[in-house]
Design a protein around this nucleic acid. Structure first.
Lengths: 327, 327
DNA sequence: CGGTAACATGTTATCGGTAACTAAATTGGC
DNA sequence: GCCAATTTAGTTACCGATAACATGTTACCG
């Protein structure tokens, strides 16, 4: 910039202004500066710009796992909704661990994001402190955080699970088992478990049997193994309520191998309305949590924030029961 | 850093060194600094670091879709392999479009990445020009690019498909159909299609019927629809060779609905060794392309590059046939 | 033609680390 | 116990753009 200034016979400041199209620089000077900068092959140093203005043009996003169709869908909705704003998404994966989350948040914050989006509403105290200290907008998504750090866009896991349990009860299923990740390894999963237990209780159903499918992330093979683990005890159950569709699908296939008829002998439900729920035969009863819409709403919230609106938003996108052939 | 220095009673320079693990700072001081920095919730400003050292600490990565277990797995392998190097991954999604790729590459390059990793070996001429002009290492992955821009880590789609076709032929299947995305919408898919056709030809099999499953990304429902589209014509086939496991799974379920016995009446194969291939019953014959390993190898290549090694590497990670119950 | 508003440009300090250099403290050999 | 070698820590000057403020220049009024 100094070099360009020297050639043009102006100060670096004028060059800076001219290149940014500041109208306080005369049109003539602006054109002159632009032309010379071009001719000299001057390349604007965005790193210095970021450093000086403390605006990175980044929005940081944490997800438990990028290898999950629903989180990926949210990410895409967010990405699409932010197109044209010049904001870029910086992604960090927490592997369903609050400890990893701390580390990831630290790394992300080091890049000076202009806002941070966290999947999930449970964090280490240290993480919370970091975020508060960072003085940037925080959006917690997917869960309806009980003690939000800022904005919230999500749905109630308990509410969604209640829909499932009601549907099961209406179909005469009483003895339920819940298949989910080990306690402590997936907060969202725990919320779903509690939701099932609470709903069953309020409907006067017998106690829900909880089956541990291993550490998060749990997927198809975990559903399969959980059913294997149950063995013949499965005969005493009316329904398997699974923490996600992939788990339900794994369970479904293992049941089939064991000669159990679905849904005659046993109902199975999933969560998340993954593609596999629809395509599977029988198709799996599940809950659509509008993953893409969450991303879009977050994009809207961010645009509001950047436009100067600051009061914390709290958005419940709700959930919808999707009836399949497994109930 | 100044604040931490004041608390610890040292100079900012010492803090800087301590946090970077410089051994010219005594172990005692280092521990002290680290602890206080933690307690104070100090966040390292990598923007300033980037600015001062003129190194962005970014590696840019493009993928066709993050909502794909295999690409996600590669990304994770890369991410894991780069842990501890301080490099961060900047992700851009191209939606299987070379036009979108151009745009994404442009955006990524504006952040001054120190290297760029491209999934796929086919690009617009304009994209190639941009990349050449950027003067940074380029790594093309997944395909073995015919005219590489730099380094290559991938496998041969033709080779992988040939393994599948040979396995089918050995089991007496002769009349094959290939289900994949519309021509031009997925280069990797096209390479697989050509691979099937070539392998069938070299084995003296009848001409392969090509079934268009719609625009990429194609998934379970596309496999389902492709089979619906085939209708009764499917009775004349011996095998459905699908461009990916999800497509194969969709096709498999639709066949089941139509009362076709798999594998007695018809063989079905997938690609990619997705979880669904194993869990499905019957399990699907597929090819493992070592997605995670690709990511790891890329991480190694990057480390070599940053260590100063510059000659272009060309790594074929190969592929492995995984026999399932659908052949 | 003096004076001020409106416009155009310049000056200075700074964002937060860190390379290169300098200086102090400690160690160890004799 | 002394001095050189080694270890540890501090100083200074940046990286390049730009916000905030200061100054210079022109336009236009009565």
């Amino acid at each position: 910039m100094r070099d360009v200034a020297r050639v043009v016979g102006k100060s670096p400041m004028t060059v800076s202004r001219a290149l940014r199209g500041d109208t306080t620089v005369s049109a003539k000077t602006r054109a002159l500066v632009r032309q010379n900068a071009d001719e000299m092959g001057y390349v604007y140093d965005s790193t210095a710009h970021v450093f000086r203005t403390q605006k990175s043009g980044f929005v940081a996003v944490t997800v438990p796992s990028i290898n999950n169709a629903n989180f990926a869908e949210t990410f895409r909705g967010l990405s699409d909704g932010l197109e044209g704003t010049g904001m870029q998404l910086l992604l960090g994966s927490t592997n369903y661990s609050v400890d990893k989350e701390l580390e990831v948040v630290r790394q992300l914050l080091a890049r000076n994001p202009e806002a941070i989006v966290l999947t999930g509403g449970t964090h280490l105290p240290q993480t919370r402190r970091l975020l508060e200290k960072a003085q940037i907008p925080v959006i917690e998504i997917w869960d309806l955080a009980s003690d939000p750090l800022g904005h919230v866009v999500g749905f109630s896991n308990a509410d969604a699970m209640s829909k499932i349990v009601h549907d099961l009860a209406e179909n005469g299923r009483r003895k339920l088992a819940f298949i989910g990740a080990s306690e402590g390894s997936d907060m969202r999963g725990s919320a779903r478990r509690e939701g099932v237990i609470a709903a069953a209780q309020s409907l006067g159903l017998p106690e829900v049997r909880v089956i541990d499918a291993g550490f998060a992330p749990v997927s198809m093979r975990h559903g399969m193994r959980a059913v294997q683990k149950l063995g013949q005890a499965i005969k005493q159950l009316d329904a398997l309520v699974c923490v996600s569709d992939p788990v339900a699908f794994g369970a479904l296939n293992e049941c089939r191998r064991m000669g159990i008829n679905i849904p005659q002998d046993l109902a199975i439900t999933g969560f998340g309305n993954f593609e596999v729920a629809t395509v599977s035969s029988p198709s799996i009863t599940t809950v659509n949590v509008h993953a893409n819409q969450i991303g879009r709403k977050v994009a809207n919230v961010l645009q509001d924030i950047f436009a100067g609106q600051i009061d914390a938003q709290w958005i419940d996108v709700g959930s919808t029961l999707v009836r399949g052939e497994t109930v």
